[in-house]
Amino acid sequence: KTSIARFIAEMLGFEPVVVTANAHWSRVDVIGGPMLIGTGSVTWRPGVLLEAIARHVEAKKRGKRGAWLIIDEINRADVDKAFGEFFTIFSGPEPREWIIPLYIVDEWSKYSSMNRDDVYRDILEKVKTSLKKSDTGYYVPPDFRVIGTMNYVDVANLFAIGEAFTRRFVRIVIDYPGDIDKELKVLLNRIGRSSEFVDAIKVIDDDLLNVIKSITNELRKIRRLAFGPAYLLNALYTFLAHVRLKLTTGMPIESVKKEVRRILRYAIESSLSITPLWDDELRQEVKKVLDNVLGS
């Protein structure tokens, strides 16, 4: 999802500003707010939204179309705690309704004026001098965008995303790729660009590719599991790292090929065990798939 969002931004001429949300996010992280710095003084640090808007302005001056903010795993943040003023800024669907309230910029200016060593002053000046001003605030550039990504499969285990928040976005559901052969080709080509896997990748022949495809297709039938390209890529990296380790210790490649199913099982299990939904029930479902395809 994040790769697609980044690709779209770049193809349209916008620089992607990618951040990952987390449960500790607050107003300071998204909008901005006062914070202590190393010298013991207080400064006003802009959050990811205002910083991205400033990056948008700066990118335009460099000949780019601007910058877009991409918030990965957006539902890992507590929306009520972190995005309160996001609702105010993006109050409606039309760009003419997107306004940074004056009180936010005034608050920022107040703290900046009290700290002569304010490292964020240049960002403040970009906002104040480059954005169109109204009686109530500063207009967000109409071609600026915020993209949020999330997994539907683990939505019950993370913070709730209310309708008031989601209606400020266009919702696009991204399903698994429809062509597993093309997907694997793209992922393996990506891995193959790394010189460290030149020898290890040779163990993946047509038979092993078919095994990987069968496992992938079956895992994607498990409702509680999101085995997308990112997880598949991670499993392939883990698999090839273990193959490479055996080759570097002197094991002949033909001997390694005899162990590829065991190594593949370990790679998939270790990659999936870090998902927040991993429990005994899900482990058993994954084990059943691996037993059926690889043998118990």
Rank of each mutant, 00 (worst) to 15 (best):
N210R: 10
A226Q: 07
I215N: 00
S214Y: 05
L240E: 06
K257R: 08
A241D: 13
I274L: 09
I268C: 01
T249A: 07
R265T: 14
G228T: 13
I263R: 02
I253P: 09
I215C: 02
L277P: 08
L209T: 02
T238Q: 11
I212P: 01
H242T: 10
E259P: 02
N217E: 14
A230V: 13
K257C: 03
S270M: 09
R262E: 14
S273M: 11
N234K: 11
R223K: 15
I222K: 02
K258L: 10
E269M: 15
F227Q: 03
A235H: 05
E254L: 11
F239Q: 00
V243T: 05
I222W: 03
L245S: 12
M251E: 12
R223M: 05
A230T: 12
T275I: 11
V211D: 04
F239E: 01
S273E: 14
L233S: 14
T275G: 12
L245Q: 10
Y237E: 14
L209A: 03
L233K: 13
L225G: 00
V260E: 08
L245P: 05
L277S: 13
K213H: 11
L247P: 11
P229S: 05
G250S: 04
E269N: 08
I212L: 04
K258H: 04
T216L: 02
I212S: 04
Y231A: 06
V256T: 03
L233P: 15
E254I: 15
A267C: 09
A226E: 08
R224C: 04
A267P: 08
H242M: 14
